[in-house]
Structure formats: C-alpha cells, structure tokens
Design a binder for these strands. Structure first.
Length: 272
DNA sequence: ATGGCTTACAAAGTAAGA
C-alpha cells in the first residue's frame, strides 16, 4: 500500500480552489496539506473537494492571514485533530491529524512565520517571533509530543531554506531572511529534537539545487530560476525509509494566477 | 534588479508575504 502526501502553500485557498482541484485530480494525492489558506474558519471551500472524493478536511483558519488545512481522501482517527497555538498567538499555524489502522501515523502541517525583512531579533519583532516559534517547536518535540508507538510525518511551509543548494545563491542569501545561519541552526535543532528525517533530500542529493518557491517579483521566474526550498517533508526514520518517490511540481508555478509556492509530493509504502 | 508583485480587506491605501 502506498500513501501519497502533498504540501502546498496556496496563498488563498478560495482564490485558487480551481488550482487545488486540478492538482488533486492530476496528481492524486491521498492527503494534501495547505498553508496560507487566508480563509476564516467555517468558510473553507469544502464542496468541490468533497466532489473529488476528499471528504475529510481539518481546517484551522482565520480572517485575512495565515491558516492551515488538511484535505484527505482517507478518514482521520476519531478526535485526532489538534491545532497547537505557538508563541501565545491564535494565528493558525499548525494542525495535525492521525491516519492509519495498524500503525498510526500522525501528520503535522506547519506554517512557520516568514520573519520580515531584517534578520535581527532586537529590532525586528517578526524575526524574533520566527526564532521563538522554532524554539517552541524544538521544546515541544524534545518533550516527546509524539505518542509512543506513533510514527510521524511533518510537512509545511517552514520558511527556511537550510542547505547551500536550497537557494539560488548561498553567498548572496546568507544575510537574507530564510537562509541566515541563526534560522538554519534553529531548524536543525527542531529536526533533531523530533528525530525527523528530511525526506526531500533523501531523494535529491544535497549538492543539487532544489526549490519550492519563486518570487512574484521576478520578471521571468522560470528564466531567472532564483528559487528557494521553503517547503519541506520530514518523517520519522521508519516512515522516511519507506519513501519511494518525491516530486516537486515546478510546473504549477506557471499555471494561471499561480501561488508563489508549488506542491511537493512524497510517496510512502505504508499500510494505511 | 530579491523585489520591480500579489494577496486580503467594512475597498483606498495599508499590511503582509519572503
């Protein structure tokens, strides 16, 4: 049996619901995790997704900003939906559910704060928030937030491109928010605390460029190809080991009225 | 020339993204 998991920062799920439906139909994931839904709780465009067979939806949204959701063909464990509030804010940056019969797998969907422009926490409150968010994730996973016996998958827009070839120019971006050493060290700590394996880099060697986001501001995003890998798929070791395939749907950046992020898909050989 | 754009919103100009 195979489980296909996808993650996509959609930058308004209501504006781009047709793109979501196209993706679900053409790539046939079992579960799609969305970030930046920008959709108030209760106003998620569920109907067209249900019509495509995705009748299980965990939404955690608010007006205007942020917001995450999990859209699934497979049922969730009863009462398994959780949304953790980070940094004492109710800003809808996490939702998790549990899948699977014999071997439960908890799926975490995260939207880590972008962090603003200036990579200095003493003068930029947004950057301070980003670092504190990472610290809180670290502490949460270190404490063993995972139920014992449960494996896990963590996906989302983590807003950090940790490796040299996760950005178009390592040298130029070391001082740019998303690729600064203090952020990448923070992300490394989160990964270690949860014993998470970077599934994308298991499939694509670290010396090859790998991007999931291209700025709206580039005149020609495709030709310039100045991307960053801001979106991630992590899993606990046994789950990561079962991953048979990875796809970054770069073409989606060229669709009509696109998001600036593209879907990332991983297949796992799991009983679900 | 990595922001030159794009989004939401008690709708014109702000705030936010990254």
């Amino acid at each position: 049996m195979s489980l296909r998991v996808a993650t996509w920062n959609i930058n308004s799920v209501r504006l781009r619901i047709d793109n979501v439906c196209r993706f679900l139909q053409e790539w046939q994931p079992d579960v799609l995790c969305l970030q930046e839904t920008k959709c108030p709780q209760g106003q998620f465009p569920s109907a067209p997704l249900r019509d495509l067979g995705f009748g299980h939806i965990a939404e955690h949204g608010q007006k205007g900003y942020h917001g995450v959701a999990i859209v699934s063909r497979l049922p969730f464990h009863e009462n398994s939906q959780h949304s953790r509030a980070f940094c004492g804010k109710g800003d809808c940056r996490h939702v998790s559910i549990t899948l699977g019969r014999d071997r439960p797998v908890t799926l975490h969907n995260f939207y880590v704060p972008a962090g603003g422009d200036e990579p200095d926490a003493s003068i930029n409150e947004k950057f301070d928030h980003k670092l504190k968010f990472l610290d809180e994730m670290d502490g949460w996973f270190a404490k063993g937030s995972q139920k014992s016996g449960h494996e896990g998958i963590l996906v989302g827009d983590l807003n950090i491109a940790p490796l040299e070839h996760d950005v178009w120019s390592h040298k130029d971006l070391l001082k740019v928010v998303s690729h600064t050493p203090i952020e990448t060290r923070g992300l490394d700590r989160v990964q270690a605390a949860g014993k998470w394996v970077d599934v994308m880099r298991q499939h694509v060697p670290a010396d090859q460029k790998l991007y999931t986001w291209w700025s709206y501001r580039a005149k020609d995003w495709d030709a310039a190809n100045r991307g960053r890998r801001l979106d991630h798929i992590w899993a606990t070791a046994p789950v990561a080991k079962s991953s048979s395939r990875l796809e970054v749907v770069r073409d989606a950046r060229g669709w009509k009225q696109p998001s600036d992020h593209v879907p990332v898909i991983a297949d796992f050989d799991l009983e679900v």
